[in-house]
Each structure stands twice: as structure tokens, then as C-alpha cells.
Amino acid sequence: MVDYIVEYDYDAVHDDELTIRVGEIIRNVKKLQEEGWLEGELNGRRGMFPDNFVKEIKR
């Protein structure tokens, strides 16, 4: 799994989504079957977030 950095703020709409803020690092990200969404861990919580608000961290 890979990590992503947040490029744009996003406020969660549903309980299974993450609220993300610019500059945060989302860890252990995986792609979901639902197009346009990823799932990852942030601040001890796992949830979904839109893939166009983040950028993969290349290592």
C-alpha cells in the first residue's frame, strides 16, 4: 500500500469518509471498486476520500 498527500481540503459527508486537510499524509491507501474514491488511514481512523483531492507520494 502507498501513502498520499492531501492537496485540497475535503469535508466528509458520510460516516465512512475522512475529513482531510491540505498537507496531511494519508497512509496505507488502497483503491476501491467505486470509481473516484480511495481508502486510507488518517489520525487513527480508516475511511474513504476522493482521489482527485490527493497525490501519491512517490518513494
Results as ranks from 00 to 15, higher is better:
1 M>L: 14
1 M>Y: 05
1 M>S: 15
1 M>T: 08
1 M>W: 09
2 V>C: 12
2 V>N: 15
2 V>M: 15
2 V>R: 11
2 V>W: 10
3 D>E: 14
3 D>H: 09
3 D>G: 05
3 D>Q: 09
4 Y>L: 04
4 Y>C: 09
4 Y>Q: 02
5 I>E: 07
5 I>K: 11
5 I>Q: 14
6 V>W: 00
6 V>I: 01
7 E>V: 14
7 E>G: 06
8 Y>N: 05
8 Y>K: 15
8 Y>D: 09
9 D>M: 01
9 D>P: 11
9 D>A: 11
9 D>R: 05
10 Y>L: 02
10 Y>R: 13
10 Y>G: 03
11 D>N: 11
12 A>L: 00
12 A>R: 05
12 A>C: 06
13 V>Y: 06
13 V>Q: 07
13 V>A: 14
13 V>M: 12
15 D>G: 12
16 D>P: 05
17 E>V: 02
17 E>F: 04
17 E>N: 05
17 E>A: 03
17 E>D: 10
18 L>K: 02
18 L>G: 00
18 L>F: 01
19 T>N: 08
19 T>Q: 04
19 T>W: 00
20 I>M: 13
21 R>H: 09
21 R>N: 01
21 R>P: 01
21 R>S: 05
21 R>M: 02
21 R>C: 07
22 V>A: 15
22 V>G: 13
22 V>K: 15
22 V>W: 02
22 V>C: 06
23 G>T: 02
23 G>W: 00
23 G>L: 00
24 E>S: 07
24 E>L: 02
24 E>K: 00
24 E>C: 03
24 E>F: 06
25 I>C: 05
27 R>L: 08
27 R>N: 09
27 R>F: 09
27 R>Q: 10
28 N>D: 14
28 N>E: 09
29 V>F: 00
29 V>H: 03
30 K>V: 09
30 K>R: 12
30 K>H: 15
30 K>D: 08
31 K>Q: 12
31 K>A: 14
32 L>V: 15
32 L>C: 14
32 L>Q: 11
32 L>M: 10
32 L>R: 13
33 Q>G: 14
33 Q>M: 08
33 Q>V: 06
33 Q>E: 13
34 E>V: 13
34 E>A: 12
34 E>N: 14
34 E>R: 14
35 E>N: 14
35 E>M: 09
35 E>R: 13
35 E>C: 10
36 G>H: 08
36 G>F: 03
37 W>P: 00
37 W>R: 07
37 W>M: 08
38 L>V: 04
38 L>M: 14
38 L>E: 01
38 L>H: 03
39 E>V: 09
39 E>C: 13
39 E>T: 07
40 G>D: 01
40 G>R: 01
40 G>A: 00
42 L>S: 07
42 L>C: 13
42 L>T: 04
43 N>K: 10
44 G>H: 04
45 R>Q: 13
45 R>F: 08
45 R>N: 09
46 R>K: 09
49 F>H: 02
49 F>Q: 01
49 F>M: 05
49 F>L: 08
50 P>A: 04
50 P>S: 06
50 P>F: 03
51 D>M: 10
52 N>Y: 08
52 N>T: 12
52 N>L: 13
52 N>I: 10
53 F>H: 15
53 F>K: 10
53 F>W: 13
53 F>M: 12
53 F>R: 13
53 F>C: 15
54 V>H: 04
54 V>I: 03
55 K>A: 07
55 K>F: 00
55 K>I: 09
56 E>I: 07
56 E>L: 09
57 I>M: 08
58 K>R: 13
58 K>F: 15
58 K>M: 10
58 K>I: 09
58 K>N: 03
59 R>L: 15
59 R>T: 13
59 R>M: 12
